[in-house]
Design a binder for these strands. Structure first.
Lengths: 258, 258
DNA sequence: TTGAAACGTGAACAATCGTGCAATATGGAG
DNA sequence: CTCCATATTGCACGATTGTTCACGTTTCAA
């Protein structure tokens, strides 16, 4: 029982910090049965390693540099996270899931429940990086030339790679969704990739924020009736929504952000 | 109990570690009826095999969740950065460079001068993420199943992908470097990949910190004379260093950290 | 402004570490 | 069977690291 080496403490503190929790010297001292001096020295050491920020009374996790893309936008993030959570609920244990490029899809990673036992493939560097710390999830990276605008691989090699996959459920990153334009993207290579991805997938899910709804981008990927589940925000405008329903799309409203 | 051969004890300890438990030297010594010295030796051995992480008072299981890259940002970082800077100086504009997995190689990204106009390929998610922000560098991601211990792709697909590349200069991530053991790695898949990588490369560079020098890991990648440039720390011990030179390795000492 | 709590530093002390050495198995070759 | 190489162990030593305590300083809040 007392199998913990004395310095496991330091790692436990680091783990909490990495998890986003803030810690106080007094609490930790009581918890580990050490003097506050020892704890303070630990915190100072961790701070020196850049793992936390030292404050009066304890330490705060510091997470500024670790977010690669536009995840830091506050309000946007909450709205997108609501979509991501609704999308994550659709996933069933044991499935082979593909997460396409996109900031909303990136948030699905955070929305996945613990220990879900999945295999996930992606062509997005940000998504793969976020998934790499999940031991319960098998991760498959689709390689190729990295498109700097997209932040992932969408070249011919990537298309070929997804063509060989039997995907249960793919989350297609859409730039725009409308009845006339279907699901569309800004870049042609990106669109080509997404088309191949949808062709390899049993079920296609699209998470669409309000500003994507009812707009068109240059390159068409799919007609809307090829979407198996289109997840929209709780306050999505009724106009485009009912129009999409009329064209055979299965709409799903996300719960409002808490 | 005390009838067990030493190997059985090591296996038992390794099993606990693999199960996620942390162990303390004192407890284990009492439990097996051995002196702490013997236990410490076991732990040191297991740590050298990459099965656990040694801490003051015992050992911790090395978890997949604890990303090795973020955490190595302390004093280690400065020493590794000195190596990385020396390595980056070897790169010439216009080259096709491969950065293999490894925390030291990750720091090469930070050490690259601005607007250098390179094409870089990598199989490491961390390195690719770091490179994605550099508009002056063309980025090629080698895909495949992501090995959670390695943090990158080293499967058959990745081997096949590098076999098709004509690489000018590759930075091989080494777990150990010694005259008898050559360049070696902890995992067999990782070693196989690195071997294929070296075969596709004109020049092979290895950055070796002091603790890697003179040690051996289970899976051999290359003899040391296949290394074109072996970069070591400014204060690398002379024993292993001169021995390596005698075996045909081209040594290069990094400048001390400022 | 003032008091209490938290802080950093340095010294004393305890635990742990690594290494060299000698003693004791174990196992194969002659 | 003997001999030798190898592996493993316990012990002693100096070196390193962690812990606590004491003391003076800084920070926070009233």
């Amino acid at each position: 029982m007392s199998n913990d080496p004395p310095l496991a403490r330091r790692d436990q503190i680091a783990a909490r910090l990495a998890d986003g929790q803030s810690v106080s010297s007094a609490t930790l001292a009581a918890e580990f049965g050490m003097s506050e001096d020892a704890i303070r020295r630990d915190l100072r050491l961790l701070a020196a390693q850049g793992l936390c920020r030292r404050v009066y009374g304890g330490a705060l996790p510091l997470q500024i540099g670790s977010i690669p893309f536009d995840q830091r936008s506050g309000e946007d993030r909450d709205r997108k996270f609501a979509l991501a959570r609704r999308g994550a609920e659709l996933i069933e244990p044991g499935e082979f899931v593909f997460l396409d490029n996109g900031s909303t899809n990136l948030l699905i990673v955070d929305a996945l429940p613990d220990e879900i036992e999945l295999t996930i493939a992606t062509n997005s560097l940000a998504i793969a990086s976020a998934l790499a710390r999940r031991p319960d999830i098998g991760l498959l990276m689709v390689g190729g030339a990295v498109d700097p605008l997209v932040g992932g691989c969408v070249d011919a090699g990537a298309v070929q790679a997804v063509a060989m996959m039997n995907i249960d459920r793919c989350f297609l990153g859409a730039c725009s969704v409308s009845t006339e334009g279907g699901v569309s993207a800004f870049e042609i290579a990106d669109a080509t990739f997404k088309r191949a991805l949808a062709d390899s997938s049993q079920r296609v899910i699209v998470l669409a924020t309000n500003e994507k709804l009812g707009t068109s981008a240059p390159h068409r990927i799919l007609p809307t009736d090829r979407i198996d589940q289109l997840v929209i925000e709780h306050d999505a405008p009724d106009g485009p929504a009912s129009e999409l329903t009329a064209h055979g799309a299965a709409l799903l409203r996300a719960a409002p952000a808490p």
